[in-house]
Nucleic acid binder design. Structure first.
Length: 158
DNA sequence: CGATTTTGACCCGCGC
DNA sequence: GCGCGGGTCAAAATCG
């Protein structure tokens, strides 16, 4: 009866596209006061699921672009099991849609002990949004930052 | 009213 | 062959 309703799942058996494997992992150090439901990084994201994995007892949140859900852009946010104040945001895909309100970029994230200029991070993000020409550098940089335990990434604090 | 969020259930892939 | 985990979608409820 209701089976036909659930049969429409996975309507796309295959995707003739390699999909942009630009997976950038950014460690965001935030305080319990800044743990908002939606992370404002310049774009709008819609939470579409929450699941807890064995790797981390903390629930992992899944976000999708609410402006262009058809774009291959996804965002995963997981909390560090060791540092509950550290949020690990994994950006999957690239941005191909215009900004909803670039002026609204005001992330209250507190970058304490940040060894990098917030402006640099913003430029790095813009690079991804504009073109993935430096995705290698971005990946390397992100990797370096991710490896730094004392690294706190602040997204556009201007 | 619209938009967004939350929870549950289901599905697929992979390993052994 | 079977089980588990992980991931996504749907619907409903709520808020501004």
């Amino acid at each position: 009866m209701i089976q036909k309703s659930i049969l429409k799942k996975h309507a796309s058996p295959k995707r003739p596209r390699e999909i942009t494997t630009n997976i950038s992992t950014v460690c965001i150090k935030t305080t319990s006061s800044d743990q908002t439901s939606v992370v404002k990084d310049g774009y709008h994201w819609r939470k579409y699921g929450q699941k807890v994995t064995r790797d981390n007892p903390s629930p992992r949140a899944y976000y999708k672009c609410s402006f262009a859900p058809t774009f291959p852009v996804k965002k995963k946010v997981q909390r560090s099991a060791k540092d509950p104040s550290v949020l690990v945001a994994t950006y999957e895909g690239e941005h191909n849609h215009p900004h909803p309100s670039q002026a609204e970029i005001k992330v209250p994230l507190v970058n304490q002990g940040v060894t990098i200029d917030p402006r640099y991070l913003k430029k790095f993000m813009e690079d991804i949004n504009t073109n993935s020409l430096q995705r290698d550098l971005v990946e390397q940089m992100t990797s370096s930052l991710t490896k730094n335990p004392s690294f706190a990434a602040a997204v556009a604090a201007a």
